[in-house]
Each structure stands twice: as structure tokens, then as C-alpha cells.
Design a protein around this nucleic acid. Structure first.
Lengths: 224, 224
DNA sequence: TGCATTTTCTATCACTTGATATAATTTTGC
DNA sequence: GCAAAATTATATCAAGTGATAGAAAATGCA
């Protein structure tokens, strides 16, 4: 079993291959890998299983992604791409609202929209691949954690913090706002990691509504 | 690689062995395994590594615990034993307070003590073995999740729910209180799973104080 | 001290795993 | 249609992995 964080993974093929057919194969492998890594973690999945799930033969995996770790990192980048696509509209609207005149109520509304979109991305069963992969990388931070941190967590926290400043009744410093933003994000990750407990206790998965209500209550508390 | 959740793990030796020397060996293996499984997960650790860490030879591991999975389950039971030992006093005090006359303020105080103790058990670096093992089992629920759920999560949630009912200004049903209890527990797991983000963003680990303050604020909110 | 039981040990096994070499097949553009 | 490049395939490798068999050593009690 190769080291998970070996010094340098070999270069992988570019994200777009010359042949259209190769592109499709690449996507197929990524989807299979996201599901497999999300379900069983890096060490818990064999390259053979991923190849079988993707309907390819084993060396194709090395051909496209270099090695197992290269495939794992490609999955992290894929999640980032999906995140950016998913959050593009909400993010831009939120940024735009920050450039206008101060409007605490508007900022709170934007914050709710942003947190809702984030919750949707991270918690809904329609995005199990995203959800499980991200959760696992949090539980066992490796090289992909830095990818996700730089592209997902940190930008998200910074934007939430800015909105918190704009939405708050009291005057907050950047550091204070960041603490609050981190707490809200921890609330999200709590629902993620607490999902087995919630499911077992409540007899069902925490509904997105329940999560959003909890987050919105925190946002409303900024006005008090 | 053997299936993680094979139909039936072989029987393991009883928790106390006839020879005192065997007892010591058993504990040594358990400690090494807890650390290894906590750090790298079930699939990420070899029986050879655990054996080396414990200072035993490999077949001794099979001798005491049957196989790798048996060892893993024994670790879950060890966590439970530590949990019960850790929470014994706080738990009994809390239960005793529930049998006296209604006293919302006292119930809130007990609830804070209980949550603090729980946070201490699950989050402090002094208990990294506990913390990491529990966190991983949440991220990848297997057979050990049931052990932990039955012995740790559910009793904890039930007791917290009872205290919430006693502590609340408004009259709550059992179901409503349970939802709130689950939310508080999710708050705890959020700090667990969000630790890499917090650490990276704040430049330090979320202090126990910070966590306890957040939980106590939620308890105080029960009086409003 | 002797003996039965428990524990530890060496050697070994069958299988698994990530990966590679080389050849065959497919795709693409001119 | 053809040639070059890309992609897919079969066969194989070296190392690792969980586990076992049987023997040797250690333990504890009468």
C-alpha cells in the first residue's frame, strides 16, 4: 500500500484530453472514484474496484491520473469545480450587496441565501459524492484538505464573515466576525458528522429544512 | 484485505485473562490499536504496525482478539468503558437532580456540567485516542458505531433531553427536547469535525473554553 | 518442583494491491 | 483511406497483508 502523502505524485493527464472519447472516460472514472472514495475512504478502496465501477481496465486509471493519489486529488479538484459552479450566482450576489450602501437587513438575507446554498451543497443526498468525500477529508486531512481549504472553506468563511459584519447590529472586528463565521461553518460540519446519530435517533436524516432553520436563527441573532 | 463488516467476527478472549502478564499485554495492544485506528482508520493500519507499536509479535494480536475486526470492536468497548468512568459522577448527579423537585436553574447548571464533561471527553487532546476513534467511526459508521451509539450517544442524548425539559422555560414534549439535545450533540461533533478548518483559520485549535461557551449559551437560551 | 495452561515465537501461507510493460485497438484530422 | 496519436487491453511483477500451524517459553497453583 503506497504512502498516502508521498512526496510528489506523478503528473496526471490534463483535465481535457485530445479525444472526446477520452474525456468521457475521464469523467466516468472521476464519478466512480468520488463515489468510492466517499463511501470507503482512500485506503478502503482498491484501484481495481474503481476501475470496475467505471467500466475500464485497471491501467487506464494510471494512464489518466498517474496513480491512486493523483486520482484522489483530481476528485478534490472536481469537488471544487462543482462547488464554484453551484455557488457562483449566490456568491456574486452576496459580493455585490457588500459594495452597495450599508444594509444590515439585506446582508442578513444574503447571508441566509449563502448558508442555505452551502448547506445544500454539503448536506443533501443529491450530492452524496460531494458530501461524503468532503466529510472524509475533514476526518482525515491529507493533501486534498489543502485543496478544499484554499478553494472552499476559506473563501466561504471570509465571505460569511464579511456578511456577518454587514449584518450585525453591533460593530464587529474582522477577527470577531471570523470567529462567528467559523462557528456557523462548524454548525454545518456538525450536521454532516452527526448525521449517523441524527438518523439513528430521529429515525430519519436531518432534513435540510431543519439545518437551514438552525442557521437562520443564528443569522437573526445578529440583529439582537 | 478482509471485509470490514464480515458476518461474524471470531470470538475474542475475555477482557480479563488468567495470567496477570496477559492482562498487561492485552492493555498494551488496546492502547496501541486505539492510537493507530484513531490516526489512520481501520483500513489504513496494518496489524503489523499495531503489533510493533504494542511491542508484541503479530500472532499475539490474533490470539487475544481473534482478528483485526475483533480488535477494532474491542477498542470501541474500551472507549465506552472510559466514557462511563469519565462521566460516572456527572451523570449520577444529573440523574439525582431530576428526581428532586422541579428546579430549572439547577437543571441548567447540571446540563452545563454534563455538556462540559462530554466536550472534555470528546474534544480534548488529552483524550486523542478517544477523540479520533469516535470521530472516524462517525465518518464511516460500521459495526462499532452501534456499540458507541448504544453506550454513548443515545444515553447521552436521552439524559440531555431530560435536562432540557427540566431546564426550559417553555413546556417541551419529549420529542421536542430530543431534537434540541441532538442539536447540541451536533454542535459538539461540529467542533470535532471542523477542527482542521478551525485550526487552519484561527491558527490554533478551538479551545475547550470556546466550545463550552457556545454550549452554555445554548443552555441559557432555554430560559428565554 | 512439576504440571497444565497460557502466552509468545518463528516460519510460512494464500491472497491482495498498486503498478508496469508491451501490444492491440480506437480515434482523429488531413 | 491512412498515419499518428491516444486509448484500451492482457499479462505480469514485487511488495504487502491478515492470518495460521506448530513449537517453545512463561505463568501460576497445588
Amino acid at each position: 500500500m503506497s504512502a498516502r502523502n508521498s512526496p510528489l505524485p506523478p503528473p496526471t493527464r490534463s483535465a481535457t484530453t485530445p479525444y472526446k472519447k477520452g474525456d468521457e472516460t475521464r469523467v466516468r472514472i472521476l464519478n466512480a472514484a468520488l463515489a468510492a472514495f466517499g463511501n470507503s475512504g482512500f485506503a478502503g478502496v482498491t484501484t481495481r474496484q474503481i476501475a470496475e465501477d467505471a467500466g475500464i481496465n485497471l491501467p487506464a486509471l494510471n494512464y489518466y491520473f498517474g496513480n491512486k493519489e493523483g486520482l484522489y486529488l483530481a476528485c478534490a479538484h472536481e469537488i471544487l469545480a462543482r462547488y464554484h459552479e453551484s455557488m457562483a450566482v449566490v456568491g456574486e450576489t452576496a459580493l455585490a450587496s457588500l459594495e452597495g450602501p450599508p444594509d444590515p437587513g439585506g446582508a442578513r438575507a444574503q447571508l441566509k441565501l449563502l448558508l442555505t446554498a452551502l448547506a445544500r451543497f454539503l448536506l443533501t443526498s443529491a450530492s452524496d459524492q460531494n458530501r461524503l468525500f468532503v466529510q472524509r477529508e475533514l476526518a482525515d486531512p491529507g493533501r486534498a484538505f489543502e485543496v478544499l481549504y484554499a478553494g472552499l472553506w476559506r473563501p466561504g468563511i471570509e465571505l460569511v464573515a464579511k456578511l456577518i459584519i454587514a449584518a450585525s447590529k453591533e460593530q464587529l472586528t474582522t477577527a470577531q466576525a471570523r470567529v462567528r463565521a467559523v462557528m456557523m461553518i462548524a454548525g454545518l460540519t456538525g450536521f454532516q458528522s452527526g448525521a449517523p446519530i441524527i438518523s439513528r435517533t430521529m429515525g430519519k436524516t436531518a432534513s435540510l429544512t431543519m439545518v437551514i432553520e438552525a442557521l437562520e436563527a443564528q443569522v437573526d441573532a445578529l440583529a439582537r
